[in-house]
Design a protein around this nucleic acid. Structure first.
Lengths: 90, 90
DNA sequence: GCTCCTTGCTACTATTTGCGTAGCGGAAAG
DNA sequence: CTTTCCGCTACGCAAATAGTAGCAAGGAGC
C-alpha cells in the first residue's frame, strides 16, 4: 500500500491535479496550489520525482511523467464520482 | 476538489482500505492501520462519518456506507495500477 | 450489590510536519 | 553592474500526529 501512503500525504493529490495540463514552473505551481509554502512543495516534488510521477523539464517546468499521467487518468473517474458525492451532502 | 482535500488527509485512504471487508471495531481498526493513535483515528472517523463514507453499526463496528463502498470501488483500479507502478521503481 | 472484561473514546505531553516569510545563489537580459 | 526571474533553502511559529494512559458505559458472571 505504498501508493496510498504517498497519495495520503498532503498536497500530493493536488499537485497531481494541477499538473494535469501544461508544465508549470515552481512558482506557478505554488500559486496554482493556492500558496503552498515552498519548503513543503519542494519536499513533495522530491517525493514525486523519486517515485517517478513528476519530472522537471529544463526550460519548461514541472510536468507529469508518463506514469504520472497514467495515475491521473486512473483518478479521473474518481473526480466524476466526487461531484455526485458532493451533491448528496449539500 | 473537496474530495481530494478529504482523501489528502493522512489515514483516510488507509481507513477506507481497511474497512473494505468486514466491519471492524475501533481497536481492530486501530490495529489494522498499524497503530494509528486513537485521537487521530477518532477525528478521521468523525470526518468520514460527516461525509457519509463510514458509519458505526451497533454491535458490529465501523463499516463503509453505500457511498463509502462506491468510493472504494472507484479506487480499486488504482490499487491494481499501483502494483505495476511499484514494480517499475524496484 | 460487586468485580472483571470489553469497547468507544478522551486527556495529556512529546515529536513531527507544515506554514509563512524572507532571502540566497545562479542564470539570463539589459 | 544592475535587474529580473528562477529553483530552492533557512528559520521561527503553529498545527497535526504520535504515544501512552486512562475514563465512562455496557454486559457477563457471581
Amino acid at each position: 500500500m505504498a501508493l496510498l501512503d504517498l497519495l495520503g500525504r498532503r498536497w500530493v493529490l493536488r499537485i497531481l491535479w494541477e499538473l494535469r495540463g501544461e508544465p508549470l514552473n515552481f512558482r506557478e505551481l505554488q500559486a496554482a496550489c493556492g500558496g503552498i509554502s515552498p519548503s513543503v512543495l519542494n519536499t513533495r516534488l522530491a517525493d514525486m520525482r523519486d517515485t517517478q510521477l513528476v519530472e522537471l523539464l529544463p526550460d519548461e517546468g514541472y510536468a507529469l511523467t508518463k506514469m504520472g499521467r497514467e495515475l491521473h487518468t486512473q483518478l479521473t473517474p474518481l473526480t466524476v464520482w466526487s461531484e455526485k458525492w458532493a451533491k448528496t451532502l449539500t
